[in-house]
Each structure stands twice: as C-alpha cells, then as structure tokens.
Design a protein around this nucleic acid. Structure first.
Lengths: 121, 121
DNA sequence: ACCATATTTAACCATTAGGTTAAATTAACA
DNA sequence: TGTTAATTTAACCTAATGGTTAAATATGGT
C-alpha cells in the first residue's frame, strides 16, 4: 500500500524546519547541484551537509543521481504540494477578504430566513 | 526589532511536524477548546498535550485565555500564511499546467527572436 | 476553610537531531 | 597502479523532543 500523505507530512515538515535545508531546496529549485556546490554557502562541514541531504531525500524532497564522483541532487516538489494542500484550508483564517465574504454569506442566509418568516403561507 | 518570517519559519515548521499538533490545529480551526477537550482524541496523558500546546504557542500558532479553571485555546493562522508564502514559489515545480505555460512562453519567445531576425531594418 | 476540577510544573527517561573529526568509499586520471 | 577529488560512513558529543508519573498550582463551589 502507498504511504498516505499524512505519513509523509511529518517527514516533510520536519525536513523543512531547518534553515539550511530550506536554503538547499531554494538552490535546487534553479537546477541540479553537487554536494560540494550545495555546501559552499554554509559554514558547516561536508558530512553535516550530507546528513541534511539524507533528511531531504528520506522526505522525498530530493533525489541523488551519479555523474562520476559527483552526486547531482535534484529537487522533487511533490511533498511540497502536500504542504500546500494541508495549509490551504486554513487560508480563510488569515485571509481578510474571505472573512468578509463569509460574513456576507452568513448575513445573506440570515436575511433569507427572515424573509421566510415574513411571508408565511 | 521584529522577528523576521525566516526566524519563525523554523518554529512553525517544526511545530507542524507532529501529527498531534496538526490535529490540535484542525480541531481549533472550528472554534476554541479547553486543554482537556483537546486531549480527548489522543492516548497521550494531559501533560504531554500541555507540552504540545506550549510548542504551538511558542510558534505563535495558538494563544491561551482564561475562563475559570479552563484555559481556552484559540488558533492564530498568521504563521500558516508564512508557510503558504514560502511554499508558493515552488508551485511551478509540481504544477503541470504551469509547466506547460512556461514551455509555451519559452517557445513564444524563441519564435519572436526568429521573427526579429527575419525582418532586419 | 475545604474540596473538586483543570492545568501546569518537576523530575526523569529514551530517542532523535545536528554537529564535529577521522576514516572509508567511489570514480576518474596519469 | 597509485593519486587525487567527491562523497559517505563511523564514532562520538551535546542538546532538544516526546513521552511518562507524581506533585504543585489555580479557580470556583459548598
């Protein structure tokens, strides 16, 4: 059986919880890169970066190929779609426009009920 | 100085990395609830739930009021907007329609360059 | 004042996370 | 067959996570 989205959401969110890993994803969104290239902007050692890549890989956010002694990393965005899908239903809680729309619809509904009462059969 | 979004993204993502905390947020999105109410669906003890609430609170995702001996919890969605904003730029990497649009625009651009060459001043 | 209920804090434990340095592996090249 | 460069693994350390039980705290009701 396929892993459900909920199964992988844990891994995805915790992978995204570290700034280095988010920076790595940002870098990879503009194209493949080797481990050493990815490590350049950081003060960490290479093994540390290698660990971060393993976390990203186990969350399905990247995959690694092979090109001679290089391991080009590539981003896979599918888990990010799950993040987007998860967060979407909460949008109404921060989106003012939707707040107002909701209030309008609620008022409209209340108005209709009142109309029903004012014209009894 | 205000904390930047990047500062809080770490806390937000790691708060969301636990299924119990996501479930708590889901529950709170339909209204306030006390700690005991929130704990009901879980097999955890109350102190464990209390810790999860503290994590959510420190990430700015909930706040707690006071109503006699109850501490009604309320969701705050602002950090989720930051999550949404963060994930949005990656959409093109998973959205097929945008992929095709990009290819179309690239082709269009190539076509225009060709036209330029075929009509020199 | 006492009691019951809701919640938090304290103390503890096992596991995971994030980093290090040093050694091992992999693959090209002379 | 060495040698060099890229990457991973091993061994280790410290701190944070996620849970427990038992005790403390806060608040309203009798």
């Amino acid at each position: 059986m396929q892993p459900t989205h909920a199964d992988t959401l844990d891994a995805t969110f915790s992978a995204l919880a570290h700034p280095a890993r988010r920076a790595i994803l940002a870098r990879l969104s503009s194209g493949e890169a080797s481990v050493t290239e990815l490590a350049l902007p950081f003060e960490m050692t290479l093994p540390a970066v290698s660990k971060h890549l393993k976390v990203l890989e186990r969350a399905g956010l990247i995959s690694r190929g092979r090109d001679a002694q290089w391991r080009p990393c590539r981003i896979h965005a599918a888990p990010l779609r799950d993040v987007s899908d998860w967060v979407e239903p909460y949008r109404r809680l921060w989106d003012e426009r939707l707040d107002r729309l909701e209030m309008y619809l609620r008022d409209l509904n209340a108005q209709e009920k009142q109309d029903d009462n004012s014209e009894p059969k």
